[in-house]
Amino acid sequence: MYSEKVMDHFTNPRNVGEIKDANGVGQVGNPKCGDIMKMYLKIENNIIVDAKFKTFGCGAAVATSSMATELVKGKTVDEAMKITNMVVAEALDGLPPQKMHCSNLAEEAIAAAIEDYRRKSGLVPNESIDCKGCCNRCNRIHENVDDLGGCE
């Protein structure tokens, strides 16, 4: 079912843990859906110098978290914001169709952590949450809201 790369990142996940002095932390997902991803970023001079994660979820959720942390490291904040769920999935040599929502979670976790960083560093006002319309996608599926507003 899973590619070798997914299994590799599930078995030996990279960057598991917390960053004590992280300046961007984002948590997305919902225990109801069975996956929660928490991403810690350390950003210096607009460059992501370290990334770690903690994830409650299935094999695909763990593997996408691991891959997402690998992908953001060394990137500028703007570059990291361009990492989509497709980029993460492709880096893992693909995901089974029913697991694609896990890769959404990785994209959302990156965005949420960067958002947190921007808020903390005063780059955006507190109330602005720029999540590209994909926040709480899972909640909405549970509530049978058809409109997934911009989530592909």
Binding site: M7, F10, T11, C33, G34, D35, F56, G57, C58, G59, A60, A61, V62, Q98, K99, H101, C138, I141, H142
Partner: peptide, 27 residues
């Protein structure tokens, strides 16, 4: 989460099952 548990058990040769959504096609 159950599917992660099953995958790890499988690596130890243990064949089991779970009622997690991730071990099925539904949410």
């Amino acid at each position: 989460e159950g599917e992660s548990l099953l995958l790890m058990l499988d690596m130890k040769g243990i064949c089991a099952s779970s009622g997690s959504a991730c071990s099925s096609a539904s949410l």
